[in-house]
Nucleic acid binder design. Structure first.
Length: 312
DNA sequence: AAGACGAAAGTGGTTGA
DNA sequence: TCAACAACTTTCGTCTT
């Protein structure tokens, strides 16, 4: 066991006689009873530590190597049950089993965290998310574990939900579809846990801005910079015309991009745009129609059409 | 033949009694 | 807690290029 390099004083009485209750995830002053720290682990520190291997030897929790031991298998319960059924010498194994069980309970939260963070890291790197988002998601997940919000939900879905929330908070939104593909969790489930977790943790969720999606969709469709910036202008005027409220931001972004591509003679099919944005063609059509109606863009589209004809 | 269009029915979440 | 509702999807037939 690594020794504790965790030196902290109780802000109330100055005692250094602090007790770390890992099950509850609290640090309590033994002298005055104050709960010094409710966060179970300072996660961001652990994260960096694991990543940078800078060889500092004072570690609070288990060695990083154990991290990889827990495969992204199923939960701990499955393994425990399997143990029970494969025993043949009951008496001899009973004690051993109980001991194992006890050990597992006491480290359940920690193990859950390790497992979850491995998963989180995997999904995050799959989506090429920035470090700041990864850390935010880890923070959210850690909080969720502390509050017992994972109970009754799969760990993976909470990880996905935390990532989704973190992305939105950092204005680098990913669609639920992308999260779903990266994590292997159903879209509905991610949405559900996302909503649940953010509500329980009181995380404010401002609706994402369609413009945040433009850059990514645009590059996925290999559109030029002009088309991209034009679509952002369209979004702005759409916003002024109150065409955006209540609508799915991805649908709006997709439609703006579609129109903009038409105007610049870089036509993409509705299907292509729809796939990238993770909406259906129908939704694009609806938004597209609204844009044409309210923003009088038809002329520009016709203009480019004529231009192309005359070029032939 | 492929893309665009739009009607109709279905889904899951929100809201308000 | 439940029903009405808005946004979005799925499916499918028709029109346009």
């Amino acid at each position: 066991m690594p020794q504790s390099g965790y030196v902290k004083k109780c802000p109330e009485c100055g005692s250094i006689n602090l007790f770390l209750n890992r099950e509850k995830g609290e640090i309590i002053c033994k002298d005055c009873g104050l709960v010094v720290e409710e966060k179970m682990v300072d996660f961001s520190q652990e994260w960096r530590e694991f990543d940078s291997e800078d060889g500092e030897s004072r570690r609070r929790t288990g060695a990083p190597m154990t991290y990889t031991q827990y495969d992204q298998g199923l939960g701990t319960e499955v393994g425990r049950k399997a143990d029970l059924y494969t025993l043949d010498n009951k008496d001899r194994n009973k004690f051993f089993r109980l001991r194992k069980w006890q050990y597992r309970i006491s480290t359940a939260i920690e193990r859950n965290l390790k497992l979850a963070l491995a998963e989180l890291k995997r999904v995050s790197s799959y989506l090429k998310l920035p470090k700041s988002v990864e850390e935010e998601a880890a923070r959210i997940y850690t909080l969720a574990v502390q509050r017992g919000l994972v109970r009754g939900r799969s760990m993976e879905s909470v990880v996905a939900g935390a990532l989704y929330a973190a992305c939105r908070r950092h204005d680098v939104p990913r669609t639920l579809d992308e999260l779903s593909e990266a994590s292997g969790i159903e879209k509905k489930e991610i949405g559900r846990t996302y909503r649940f977790v953010t509500r329980e943790l009181g995380i404010t969720i401002l609706p994402s801005n369609p413009a945040d999606y433009i850059a990514r969709f645009s590059s996925a469709l290999k559109l030029t910079a002009e088309t991209q910036s034009r679509s952002i202008e369209i979004l702005e005027s759409a916003h002024k015309a109150e065409l955006t409220s209540g609508r799915g931001p991805t649908g709006i972004a997709a439609a703006a991009l579609y129109v903009s591509a038409l105007i610049h003679g870089e036509k993409r099919t509705q299907r292509e745009v729809a796939d990238v944005a993770g909406v259906t063609e129908v939704t694009i059509r609806n938004r597209y129609k609204e844009l044409l109606d309210k923003l009088k863009l038809e002329k520009e589209i016709k203009k480019t059409k004529k231009k192309r004809k005359s070029e032939e």
